[in-house]
Amino acid sequence: MRYTGMVSRAALAAALLLAGTGMAAADDHLLVQRIAAGTGPVLDPDAGLWQQATPLTVALQAQMIATPVNAEPAVSALTVRAVHDGLWLTFQLRWDDPTKSDTIDLDRFGDQAAVELPVKAYDANNPPNPMMGDADQPVTIMQWRAALQRDQEQGEPKLPDIYPNAHIDFYTGDLLKPEEARAYTGAVGLGNPVSRVGKSPVLDQMAAGFGSLTVKPQQRAGAKGVWADGHWTVVIARPMKTDGEFDPKLAPGDGSVAAFAVWEGGKDETGSRKAWSDWVPLSLEK
């Protein structure tokens, strides 16, 4: 079956027009501050050095181009800070969220946040589509998930985490050798990145248009989120230059753009039901 009719051409053109404007406004600019060489990724959301980084308020709008949509997403702005040490680029995202949503069952969705960067060297005259990139200009999307963060801290989810009184005698798979049991484990056995407990709560992904989001074979990103007093503070880091086909290559002094997205799990936001930003210009301090 052919992929068609999902994205209205007019809507897409409008979005591209939007993307082309407002790039130059000086106060919409994110300065990626240089920190001491050798600091590495700053994976502590509350680290003191974030105090020195200049904050930028980034406005978020409802994703309205590809169905299904949530026309009134819960989060309308987030505060972004960014630093680099010459080798690692780290973003700190902070937004208000009255509920911490990190447990998933049929009724509950997890909180998520993402940072998007162009893969190719940024050309202001020919910017990639901020809405998931396009075939000529793919993007990298680092998506942090509260549920994966929970897995890191508390181990893989078990039935009693969701249904405290549930009792199971045994699962068929428990009686088999791991290779044989694989058939009973579905997405976990196939290594689906949203199912398995990975090394990090962030998925390092690429996209080249709607519906193409794919987890990269080499996971380079790191992240950590902390929820306290009605807001999330999440740091997401990646090396500035790696050789993966869909990895951005950045150096001190470069200018580029970044875009952001937030999903408020407590409001059933997931997939295309999300709040996202336009490209935000950024410059990496020399």
């Binding site: 969701i162 949203v194 295309s272």
Partner: peptide, 25 residues
């Protein structure tokens, strides 16, 4: 490929896709 959005659970009128909360698909 599934990311557990549950749009199929919502969309199927016969309610024959099911969400696996432990696999999250």
């Amino acid at each position: 490929r599934c990311r557990g959005y549950r749009e199929c659970v919502k969309g199927c009128p016969y309610k024959k896709p099911f969400f696996n909360a432990l696999n999250r698909t």
